[in-house]
Write a protein that binds this DNA or RNA. Structure first.
Lengths: 148, 148
DNA sequence: CCGTATCCAAGGGGATACTG
DNA sequence: CAGTATCCCCTTGGATACGG
């Protein structure tokens, strides 16, 4: 008779805290913006220039999302030309720690990951090559008039 | 004269390690699968059942990506019915630490985030309400025959 | 059980032009 | 400068059916 209590299996439901959290922050631009903001206050144009490749639309969207979730503070100065400053809120700063851990992981292991991918893809090409060779071999074994 | 050396501004280029890393792992399903895999070996059907709401297609895709990047090991047992086991590789286990940090952050702060969002959205509704009131007020101030 | 193949609708996101 | 508005392509991902 089984007397040991079975360990509860972790069921990851759509409404659990982990899912609700990752839904908000687990995307590339959000994390990059948090990294880019860092400790200081940054202007919109600074962010746009330093996160190379992000469009203004995407940057605006991402910042709005972070602001909406209380992670970023937005300050508009009524000057001409306009000037808007963004910074992490105290709540946002709690998020930057785990995100920086992810950045550090990337810095340390990405080469190893890409190496693994190169080998994986190489295997794919070899397999494909083998299949082609096998097919050609089959054709060579067939009588000429049976070839499609 | 400025004698202090200017601090290098961190420019986040598309080809930097951080970008290349986040591109691969900064998405919701990938992180959830890593969390779900944990320390043990898990079957495909186990993952599909425990990550509630993920489609088979998405789960397969995500696992393939992780396998391709050397983060997950896939073992197929040639039995009927088929049985496939997935587990984190040593490299994959290095990734689970920062991801678990992100999960822990979610568990701790998500309520606070959602609270902030509720207030933000409430403000939006109030502003909209104010605008409507202002418009109605304008109409009331106009002579009746000028109303559109 | 563990996929793959195909179809298809929805929306993400870039390009561009315009504004306070 | 810091957006907003519009267009539009093209990817994403669910649904479904099928296969080993």
């Amino acid at each position: 008779m089984e007397t040991f209590k079975k360990v509860e299996e972790p069921i990851i439901r759509p409404d659990c805290r982990t899912r609700r959290g990752l839904e908000l922050i687990a995307d590339q631009w959000t994390m990059l913006v948090v990294v880019a903001l860092g400790e200081d206050t940054k202007r919109f144009s600074w962010l746009h220039a330093h996160i190379v490749g992000i469009s203004k639309k995407m940057l605006t969207q991402t910042l709005r999302g972070l602001e909406r979730n209380g992670l970023v503070k937005r300050v508009v100065y009524p000057v001409i030309p306009p000037m808007v400053e963004y910074s992490l809120t105290p709540l946002g700063r709690t998020l930057s720690k785990p995100i920086l851990a992810l950045r550090d992981w990337s810095e340390e292991y990405i080469e190893e990951v890409e190496q693994a991918r190169a080998e994986y893809d190489q295997q794919d090409r070899n397999s494909l090559q083998d299949e082609i060779i096998a097919l050609v071999q089959q054709r060579a074994d067939m009588p000429p008039n049976a070839r499609s």
